[in-house]
Nucleic acid binder design. Structure first.
Length: 558
RNA sequence: GCGCCUGUAGCUCAGCCGGACAGAGCAACGGCCUUCUAAGCCGUGGGUCGCGGGUUCGAAUCCUGCCGGGCGCGCCA
């Protein structure tokens, strides 16, 4: 059986129509009846507040309407009992028959349980990280990487055709500064810093020395005799390539890969920027003034017009970005998601205006803002400053605490709220650490199934269990949680919210641990052993699926 | 000054397209290992949901005004 709520919805709708018919009311379309899982155990497995929401239309008090609905509910083998409660809730207690069906559904669909066709195969692009190739990725980029990668996984799981893309800002002034910084360090190492002074806005990180050192290893001192301006192109290219290679390696080791690495420079090489500017002019959204080309962003929600091409002829970052987004949509995506650091939030209205000016619905571009990571060690803040080059890199963190914990921690909170990341906590292998809590549940499950096998008790091939075999609260709770998964996955997809999955899988692991401590799988009567083996296997399947979406390992042993 | 985000238990946070006595983890306290992994489980205590108004049968949730924290407002990227 697929969806319990869909079945319930039909039943309740039928009852509502009956009540309406008796009162001579006609509704063209009933609002969707919402079901939720009540907070307290004695409030049933599912409940609806529809009586309260529709009481006005029916001219009834919520509770009275609820009673009428309940009185007209058709009997259903999946329903054990139905109650009205509180201010007008209708609570549904599901029968044990339903539990067996959920179990069978999970076991039959395996890894696909919880996946959906929400996206209908439509194409979505997720662009994330996109850090300037001027230095190693820091923790903030890491959070964006984890969020973007997991969102891409979730969208894929819910039926979208997903492409992951990294936009390389390799065209602007920053590349020049990177080249000059490297060049200066090269001359400095060689003992003649005066020939190429370090730029005042240069990159001061130690990695620049490493790159300069590599240049000396490969090219020797041959640039010392050349005028700096002549060797600058080499330094620019070499430094950018080196940094980008490091970024790729860090991301790959972090479990993040991209389908496309898109170069900003390529926009210029293909001459796309001028043609995009032409498009804007033709559509009446760009105008010339004071020798510059301006975007008429005040036609949209922006507070002032913005420069596209400076009076010196150099395009702004904004011009590249409009061109880039035009190019994205030209590639045929139905939906484009950009994941940015929260410090760019002021740029969102402008970018949306840009998209709209190109004739595209601005809602086809969604911008997700990722708030900062506050790095702590034993509760104390770790000092960081990009300017001085002293920052904690993603590499540092994943080397210290491991990829699994790092990814998990990055998506534990809503993306739009600040994240406290305690390095010491993430490293602990104790119950303080939520990552291991979940992984441990999976390892325990594997252990039980292994032990069963060792004792010659194979996991039953089918998925059928006797009705009523799961009688305890712990079993029912676990099953009920497993039944929630498709809804939770859907919610995570619609909200683009990985933390929903983290919360879900933590709760699921908790339900499993409670079950495990209260009951034994092996050594009970045969039908119970078989049913519990299947239950445990199903729990393992779902935990493994969710951890897979999070890009976190599901270990068989710990 | 204008704009965006944010303020929930001692700490970190969920809940925020309005609903049943506001949830979880950690920390504190008390229990549970001869039995499938105690990296686990069970129990107890702990909250004026920043403050004041408003809308509603009903507000942590929506509106509004204050107060506190973060960020952004360039012919920078």
């Amino acid at each position: 059986m697929g969806d319990v709520t869909a079945t319930l919805r039909q039943i309740v709708e039928g009852a509502l129509r009956d009540v309406a018919a008796e009162k001579g009311l006609v509704f063209s379309g009933l609002p969707e009846i919402a079901f939720e899982k009540p907070k307290r155990d004695n409030q049933g497995d599912l409940s609806t507040n529809c009586a309260m929401q529709m009481s006005r239309h029916f001219g009834e008090k919520p509770m009275a309407l609820a009673e009428k609905i309940v009185a007209r509910l058709s009997s259903d083998p999946y329903l054990e009992k139905v109650e009205t409660a509180g201010p007008g809730f209708i609570n549904f207690f599901l029968s044990s028959r339903w539990m067996g069906e959920v179990l069978a559904d999970i076991l039959n669909r395996g890894k696909d349980y919880g996946s959906s066709h929400l996206g209908g195969g439509r194409r979505v692009q997720v662009e994330f990280v996109s850090a300037n190739p001027t230095g190693p990725l820091h923790v903030g980029h890491g959070r964006g990487a984890a969020v973007g990668d997991i969102i891409a996984n979730i969208l894929n799981f819910s039926g979208w055709d997903v492409q992951r893309e990294y936009y390389i800002n390799d065209a602007g002034l920053q590349m020049d500064i990177l080249g000059r910084s490297t060049q200066a360090r090269y001359f400095e190492i060689a003992g003649c810093p005066e020939k190429a002074p370090f730029p005042s806005d240069g990159y001061k990180g130690g990695y620049i020395y490493d790159i300069a050192g590599s240049v000396r290893e490969r090219e020797g001192d041959r640039f010392l005799s050349l005028p700096p301006e002549e060797s600058l192109p080499f330094f620019k290219t070499f430094a950018a390539d080196t940094v980008l290679a490091t970024i790729r390696k860090d991301l790959a080791d972090f479990g993040v890969t991209f389908d496309v690495w898109f170069s900003e420079k390529s926009l210029y090489e293909r001459n796309l920027v001028p043609s995009a500017m032409e498009t804007l002019k033709n559509r009446g959204f760009a105008f010339e003034q004071d020798g510059a080309l301006w975007f008429k962003s005040t036609d949209f929600t922006d507070e002032k017009d913005r420069v596209l091409i400076r009076s010196n002829g150099v395009p702004t970052y904004f011009a590249s970005d409009i061109t880039y987004h035009k190019e994205k949509f030209d590639r045929g995506f139905d939906r484009v998601i950009d994941i940015w650091g929260a410090d760019h939030h002021g740029y969102v209205p402008r970018m949306k205006a840009g998209v709209e000016s190109l004739g595209r619905n601005p809602e086809d571009l969604e911008v997700l803002l990722i708030q900062f990571v506050n790095l702590l060690r034993d509760g104390r803040q770790v000092a960081m400053s990009t300017r001085s080059g002293e920052f904690v890199t993603l590499r540092d963190v994943m080397d210290e605490v491991g990829v699994d914990a790092t990814r998990f921690f990055f998506v534990m909170r809503r993306s739009d709220s600040h994240l406290d990341f305690d390095l010491e906590l993430a490293k602990q292998t104790s119950n303080d650490n939520p990552v291991y809590y979940v992984q441990y549940a999976h390892a325990r499950i594997c252990s039980v199934l292994r032990e069963a096998e060792a004792r010659g008790i194979a996991v039953p091939a089918g998925a059928d269990v006797p009705e009523g075999i799961f009688a305890s609260d712990e079993e029912k709770k676990l099953l009920s949680r497993l039944a929630d998964f498709p809804k939770e996955a859907e919610k995570a997809s619609k909200d683009l919210a990985p933390h929903i999955l983290v919360n879900y899988v933590s709760d699921l692991a908790g339900d499993f641990h409670s079950f495990y401590n209260a009951h034994r799988v092996l050594g009970e009567e045969e039908p119970v052993v078989k049913a519990r083996q299947l239950l445990v296997k199903a729990a393992g399947t779902v935990i493994s699926t969710v951890l897979g979406l999070l890009g976190v390992a599901a270990p068989e042993r710990m």
